[in-house]
């Protein structure tokens, strides 16, 4: 059953990685706003080339 040790360790390491990712995401403000991103992703980007030269 020794392999189980390896699997447990690998799984804990992966899980720790995700814990770190979670803490990072909370810390860096990823979840400060938990509504607007779901709306923002619906907008298509503006495509007009000539527009952009104007604003550049």
């Amino acid at each position: 059953m020794q392999i189980i040790v390896v699997l447990i360790c690998v799984s804990v390491v992966v899980a720790s990685l995700f814990l770190w990712a979670f803490i990072w995401s909370v810390k860096s403000g990823q979840y400060d706003d938990d509504y607007t991103p779901s709306v923002r992703m619906l907008f298509e980007d503006q495509q007009s080339e000539n527009e952009s030269t104007k604003t550049k």
């Binding site: 607007t36 923002r40 104007k54």
Partner: peptide
């Protein structure tokens, strides 16, 4: 788009 000095605007809807 309305004023080219505005670099970015972000909304917090809630």
């Amino acid at each position: 788009r309305f004023n080219n000095h505005i670099a970015e605007s972000k909304i917090d809807f809630v």
